[in-house]
Simulated scan of single mutants.
Amino acid sequence: MRKLTATLIACCFTLGISTGVWAEAANKVTFPINSNKYTVNGREKNMDSKTFTEAGRIYVPFRYLGYSLGAGEKEVSYDISNNTAYIQLNGQTIVATLGSKFLQINNTDVTMDVAPLLRNGRVYLPARYIAEAQGYAVQWDASTNSVLLSKEELSPNQPKIATKKIQSETDILIVDIELPVISGLRNTELQESLNKQIMFDATQNQATHEKQAQEDKLASQSGEYPFRTHSLYTKYQTIPTKDVLALIILSSDYTGGAHGSNYRQFFNIDVKNGKLITLKELFKDNVDYKQIINPEVAKQIKASEESGERFFFQGDLAFKTISDTQPFYIKGDYLVVCFDQYEIAPYASGFPEFEIPLSQLKPYMDDNIVSLIK
C-alpha cells in the first residue's frame, strides 16, 4: 500500500484555529479534496479551512486531523517561538518542526519525505506518519476523491494498559518516568512477569542515575568542571495489530556532555496465546529470515543515503546483518526492523527503522503468526 499513488498518500496538513471542536476517536476518517468538511465514522463535521492539493499531495488541516484521531482541543498546539507543532495523542508526544524532515514521536525520529512548511500563517505537515503511528492505514479513495484513514477494530484479546508515573526533582537529578501497567492479558503469569520486569528495569535505571549524579556532583566540587543537573525520562508506546501488541519503552537521559542518550526496549506480545514473539518465530522453520531481511535493510539504507535523508556508517562499521535478537515490532501491514543509536548510523540519524511490507514476507511467514495479524 505504501507505493500506491505515492504522491497522494503522502498527505499533509496544517495547524488550524481552535473552534471548540471536540475530540472523537475513529475507525474510519475521510478528508475530501477542496472541502471544509470531513467525516468521522460516517458523521460529517466542519473545519475552518479547506483541504487542497499541491504538487500531487493532499493537505489537510492539522488540528482536525488530531481531533479525528482522538486528540483533545488542548492536546493540539503550535509554538510560534520555535516553529514547532505538537500533538499529545494516546500516550504519544508528536513534535514537528519547520524545515526538518524528522517527525518526533516520543523522542524517536521518523523520517518524512518532505519537511513541514509555513504558508499563510499555517503549518503544513505530512499526515501519513502520524496516522500510521496510531495504527491507521492511509489510502487514496478514488471513489470519493478523499484521503481515507482506517483502523481495524481491536481484538477482544487486547489487554488494557494503564500508566504508572514516577516523578522526582532534586538539584542533581530530574526524573520523569511513565510506565505501562498491563491488565486483562489471558496469560496472567506472563502479565505479572512483564509488569515486574518493566518496573524492575525502571527502578534500577533510576537508582543507577541517582548514584552517577551524586558521584558527578562530588567530582565537580574539585573545580575541574561544572556540574549540570542530570535527567532521566521514560515514556512508552503501544501498537496493537489484531492479536499482537507491540510495547515500546523509550528512555532518554542526560548526564553531561554535548547531548543525552536514548535507548529502547521492545516487547511483542501474542495476546491470543499469551506469549512473547521473537523475530525468528515470525517465519517458517525452514526459512533463513536473515537472508530475506538483510537485503531489504541494505536497499533502504542505500535509498536513504542517496536521497540525503539519513546517513549511515561506512566500512567496518557499516550494516552487515541483523542479529539473532534483532529488535522489531509489527505495525499494521508492516514489519518494522529497529536499530539502536550509533549501531549502524551516527547520533544525528536517531533510531534507524526499516519498514518491510508483510505482503512481501507472507510466503515465508509462519501460518499461526499470519492468523494473528490478518
Rank of each mutant, 00 (worst) to 15 (best):
L361T: 06
Y78N: 14
T170K: 06
P363W: 11
S77Q: 14
K165P: 04
V244L: 08
W140T: 09
P327F: 08
I293G: 01
L149K: 07
T84L: 15
T144I: 13
I369R: 08
M47L: 12
E306T: 13
L69T: 10
D176A: 06
I301R: 04
F227H: 00
E355L: 09
F328G: 02
A345R: 05
K101D: 01
E215K: 03
E189A: 05
E152D: 13
W140F: 12
C338W: 07
T170M: 08
P116K: 00
Y225K: 01
E44T: 15
S193C: 01
D216M: 03
K3M: 13
T188A: 03
A131C: 03
Y342R: 09
Y124M: 02
Y364R: 02
I130G: 07
L4S: 12
P363D: 07
S146F: 15
G121M: 01
N368T: 10
T255S: 13
Y78L: 15
G70C: 09
G56R: 11
T108G: 01
E189P: 00
A115D: 02
L118M: 05
Q92M: 14
K151W: 09
V123I: 12
F31A: 04
V287N: 10
L118W: 00
F351M: 11
Y67Q: 12
T321A: 02
S307R: 14
E153W: 15
K362I: 04
I161W: 00
D48N: 13
K272Q: 13
L154H: 10
Q341G: 09
Q134G: 04
I198Q: 01
Q214S: 05
M199Q: 03
L89I: 08
K151E: 07
G20C: 02
L65D: 04
M1E: 11
N82Q: 15
Y124W: 00
Q237G: 06
T229N: 06
L245A: 06
L372K: 06
R57M: 15
G350V: 07
L103D: 03
R310M: 10
R228T: 08
P126I: 00
G42R: 09
I87C: 05
G256T: 04
A219C: 01
G91A: 05
I177E: 03
K362D: 10
D79Q: 13
T278E: 11
A213T: 00
A115Y: 00
K374V: 09
K196P: 02
S155Y: 13
N145E: 11
I177T: 00
V147F: 07
E224I: 09
L65I: 12
V110M: 04
L245D: 10
D285E: 15
D316T: 13
A23G: 15
Q88S: 14
A55V: 11
Y225C: 01
S323Q: 12
T203A: 02
T241V: 06
R310G: 02
I161E: 07
T19N: 14
I172K: 11
Y233I: 11
Y254L: 09
D340A: 09
L218V: 13
N36K: 14
K362V: 04
Q214D: 03
Y364V: 00
K196D: 00
A219L: 02
